[in-house]
Design a protein around this nucleic acid. Structure first.
Lengths: 240, 240
DNA sequence: GCCGCTCGTCTAACGGTGTTAGCATATTGA
DNA sequence: TCAATATGCTAACACCGTTAGACGAGCGGC
C-alpha cells in the first residue's frame, strides 16, 4: 500500500513507541482521510475533463494506483463519491456567494448580483452544477437535502439579504422574501440550465439571456407580480 | 422470426405471385416499419416505467422478442432510438401547443397559456421532456436542431401569436417577439426543470411556482424590462 | 426447378461497467 | 510471539453497448 504524499507507517514507528500507543488511531484516521481525499481529487479532475458520465471507478482507481475494489473501503458506492463531491460543490457555491455581502449599494443591484453568482457558478463549475442541480441519475441528492445542513444557513443568509433589499425599497413592502428567493432562483436556473444543457439556439448569447431573464423577473417582482403570494418555504428550513 | 400484429410472409405469397414481383418491396418496407415501430414503442414504454438511464438494448430486445443484435438492423445505435423518440416528442408538444390557437381572448392570458403548455408537457411526458430539454448524455440533439425542420415552424407560429398579443396591447409596442419568446421559455423552463429534476424543497408546490414565475416574467415584460432588447433569433430560423 | 444473392436474425464474443467474495498481508494490541 | 484487525489484492458476477460471423429464408435470373 502506497499513500502518496503521506508519511509511511515505518517513518513514525519510533515516535509511536515513545508515546506508547497514543496517536496510533489518529495516524490511521489521517491515512484514511488522505486516501479518501485522493479518491475525491481524482474523481473531480476526471469529471471536469472527461465528463461525469464517462468516468468509471476503474479509471479513478487507475489514477490513484489502487485496485477498483479498494475504493469500496472508503465509499460505499459510486453514488457516494458523487455525494461527497456535491457537498464540496455546495460549499464552493456558498463561499462564492457570500464573499460580496455588500448590502449598502443599490438594493436592486444587490439582488441581481446575488443570483448572478448562481449563473456564474454554472459556468465556472459545470460538473458540480450538473451534479447539484440538473442530474436525474443521482436521485438520493434530492432526498437528502437536509443532510447538507449548511444549505439551510446559506438560504437563510440570502433571505435576510433579500429582506434587506425589500426594506430599502427595491421591492414592494408586502413581498415575501421566500417568494422572491424562489422566483429569482427559478428564473436564473432556467437560463443556466438551458445554456449548460446546450439547448440554446446556435450562436445565441447565454449571458445576455440570463441577464435579461434576471432583469425581467426583478422588474416583475417590482411591479408587484408576487405581492401577497407566499410560496411555501421549505419545511426543512428553520421557520423564521 | 415473429412480427406481432403483422401478416407473415407466407400469408401473402399467393398474392405476390399473381402480381408478379410488384409490391414485394412494399411488403418488405411495411415489415421493416412494423418492427421499427415496435422497437420505438417498447423503448418508450420502458422509458416511462423504468426511467431513461436504466433501459438497455437487451431489455428492449427481450420485450419485442428479438435478439439485441437485431435492433442494429433498424437503428444504428441506442442514441438513434432516443433521437427518433425525441422527434415524436417534439411533434407531441407541437400538437398540444397548437390545438388552442385562441388569439381572441385576453392577450396576456393567451401568452400565459401558450407557455403553460410547455410546463404541462414536462409533467405529462417527463421522459420525452427530459430527452428533449434536459439530458446532457445525448449531445447530438443540440447539434441537430435544424434536422427537426418543423421546430422552426412551431417557433414561428408562437412568435406570430406573441406579436399578436403585443399588438393587442399586452406588452409595450417596441418589444421584440423573439425576446419575449426566449424570456418566457426560459422562465417556464426553470420551473419545469427544477420540478422534474426533483430540486424543489420538500412539499413545495411546483405548479404554484411555475404559475408565479410565468406571471412575474410577463409582468416584468409588461413593465418594459426587455423593450429595445433583441435576443438574437436562432440563425437556423427563417428570419422574418 | 435450381442456383446464387440479398436480407434479416441469430449466437458468441469483445471490451467495458459497478460491485462483491475471498484470499493475502501487514500492522496492531496483548 | 500470537491472535485479531484492517486493508489491500485478484478474480469473478452480472450487467452494458456493440460487432463479427454463421445460418437460413425468400428473391431474381437462368
Amino acid at each position: 500500500m502506497r499513500i502518496p504524499g503521506a508519511l509511511t507507517a515505518t517513518d513514525l514507528t519510533s515516535n509511536q513507541q515513545k508515546t506508547k500507543h497514543l496517536g496510533v488511531r489518529e495516524r490511521h484516521d489521517r491515512e484514511r482521510e488522505s486516501v479518501s481525499r485522493s479518491i475525491l481529487d481524482a474523481a473531480r479532475e476526471l469529471f471536469v475533463t472527461e465528463g461525469y458520465q464517462h468516468v468509471s471507478l476503474r479509471k479513478i482507481a487507475e489514477r490513484i494506483e489502487y485496485s477498483p475494489a479498494a475504493i469500496y473501503g472508503y465509499f460505499a458506492s459510486k453514488d457516494d463519491i458523487f455525494f461527497a463531491l456535491a457537498e464540496e460543490g455546495f460549499r464552493l457555491l456558498f463561499m462564492k456567494a457570500s464573499d460580496d455581502t455588500d448590502g449598502h449599494g443599490d438594493p436592486v443591484d444587490d439582488l441581481r448580483r446575488m443570483f448572478w453568482h448562481y449563473y456564474e457558478f454554472s459556468k465556472s463549475h459545470p460538473e458540480y452544477f450538473a451534479l447539484m442541480f440538473l442530474d436525474r441519475t443521482v436521485p438520493r441528492i434530492s432526498r437528502d437535502w437536509e443532510r447538507f445542513g449548511f444549505i439551510g444557513e446559506m438560504k437563510h443568509g440570502m433571505v435576510v439579504r433579500i429582506q434587506s433589499a425589500i426594506d430599502r425599497g427595491a421591492l414592494p413592502e408586502n413581498t415575501s422574501p421566500f417568494t422572491v428567493f424562489r422566483i429569482l432562483l427559478t428564473a436564473i436556473h432556467g437560463a443556466a440550465a438551458l445554456r449548460l444543457c446546450d439547448r440554446l439556439g446556435q450562436g445565441e448569447d447565454g449571458d445576455a439571456l440570463a441577464h435579461a431573464m434576471l432583469d425581467t423577473a426583478i422588474q416583475g417582482l417590482k411591479a408587484g407580480a408576487a405581492t401577497g403570494l407566499v410560496l411555501a418555504p421549505c419545511p426543512a428550513d428553520p421557520q423564521d
